[in-house]
Design a binder for these strands. Structure first.
Lengths: 260, 260
DNA sequence: GCGCCGGTTTCGGTGACCGGAACGCGGCGC
DNA sequence: GCGCCGCGTTCCGGTCACCGAAACCGGCGC
């Protein structure tokens, strides 16, 4: 990096991979946490470890592009980012194809319905139909959760390359609740079972009081595309019914699919 | 631009604003049309007007970032773009707040429901609840339409700064159907009426056979946030009912809003 | 075989990019 | 009022990240 012989000014760990302009742009854009609506220039400089001058220049350019917007000399992510994100094919076609069935599941069960894909070594939620105003819940649209403690995650694991499972087991399994499975052999066994019965379950392994049931979704060519799940408070969960509804959806999607 | 004394190789008009790395990245990312799932490197070079070498290098970096993915030596937009787009506050908070009411409208009317915001001089659709498998329709999530021929557009125009209306009228009004209003004075009059009655209408001005009704949405501080609309085939449209349902939603949102 | 068209790598010249320094401004404490 | 601090913004000279031409590699069709 030019003229950067000085020690990193602020908390290290940030600022990695800022060799190129794109790396800097990435740091800036990803400096926006999910919740904070807007961030000041100096704050951005602090979070990214990039000099204020440079942040200013790049932010100017991102502004003109529409990836950032500003209100009152604070920055926030701009609509162009939303537009771009909506074009992502792996997201758009899957959501458009599955949404009607998610509604069907929702009206049928009156519980929360998720659509998720495998991304890296995590579940990434593409869509969520929740019931009620504010369900105390870990999941969010575009949020991530570990593979080993979610129903969608187990479904995805079961039908992905074994390498993925190996990679997951290569590092310790994070514990989210007392019920979270952290013993590798137990997880392997569960994943095997999932392949046997065709659906995956999770019981208070992510959040106390909630359990989920999931099925995988496949494209016409047989590739794994994602997974749908139903999440319900344990006390009123009717898992057998969920399994029936989910497998029905899976079948319908496999039959008349508009999935490449 | 360094070493670029040569005339622009391919169709001009593209390649604008490619002075900087970010400009190039922008060209590359926006080279992906809504529908084409994946694009080859050479095709990207052609569309952007950037040399194949440079596209290759930048694409590599975007790949590592996750903004692009590749299958089989073709590129497509990546999940990172989706995640970024989902964080855009002007999108996320509005959608989360309005979605329940959109469902309510949908079950009530059995017709297509839209949520839109003003962006630049166009309507930008944030969310769409459609009925049936494939409604022949212009609108898409993250799609854009002109302000002057959509119900949401008129609603937004009516409650925005007058400058916006002036800017729209500064250029000729595009005609989408025979019913599209292209006479400035007529549009001005309609917008005035919208402010009077509190809702906006559009009748086969965007697509023959369809008409829409819309209301604006305001935050607690009184700023215009967006607009919701109901779109129905003309022959069965019950506009009075839509107006009632929409104004109810508008009131409910204004009362117990979670909008900043 | 040979030409063609994709993706990838090499390489030297240079201008886009960098951050320090300086500036103008508004808010706060003294 | 005055000085101080932190903010956003502008200027500027040094330099390295970035650029595209050219060469390279592999598959395909003729």
């Amino acid at each position: 990096m030019p003229g950067m012989g000085h020690p990193r000014p602020y908390g290290d760990g940030l600022g990695r991979g800022a060799g190129s302009v794109l790396g800097k742009a990435r740091l800036i854009l990803e400096a926006f946490e999910i919740d904070d609506a807007q961030v000041s220039l100096s704050e951005l400089a602090r979070r990214t470890g990039i000099s204020k001058t440079t942040v200013h220049r790049l932010a100017q350019e991102l502004l003109e592009w529409g990836m950032l917007e500003r209100s009152d000399s604070d920055y926030r992510l701009g609509m162009r980012a939303f537009e771009l994100g909506s074009r992502v094919p792996r997201f758009r076609v899957l959501r458009d194809a599955v949404r009607p069935y998610m509604h069907q599941l929702h009206t049928l069960t009156k519980e929360t319905v998720h659509l998720a894909v495998l991304d890296g070594l995590e579940v990434l939620f593409l869509e969520k139909l929740a019931v009620g105003p504010r369900v105390a819940h870990q999941s969010r649209i575009a949020g991530r959760l570990p593979l080993h403690c979610t129903a969608t995650g187990k479904a995805l694991l079961a039908y992905s390359s074994p390498d993925v499972l190996d990679a997951v087991l290569a590092r310790p399994l994070e514990r989210l609740t007392p019920m979270t499975i952290v013993v590798p052999s137990l997880l392997r066994e569960q994943i095997r079972k999932v392949r046997e019965v065709g659906h995956a379950r999770e019981s208070e392994e992510t959040a106390i009081g909630y359990c989920s049931t999931a099925v995988p979704l496949f494209g016409s060519s047989g590739v794994l595309l994602g997974a749908v799940s139903v999440t319900a408070p344990t006390f009123r969960a009717d898992v057998a019914r969920y399994v029936r509804a989910l497998t029905a959806v899976r079948r319908e999607l496999a039959a008349g699919d508009h999935l490449n």
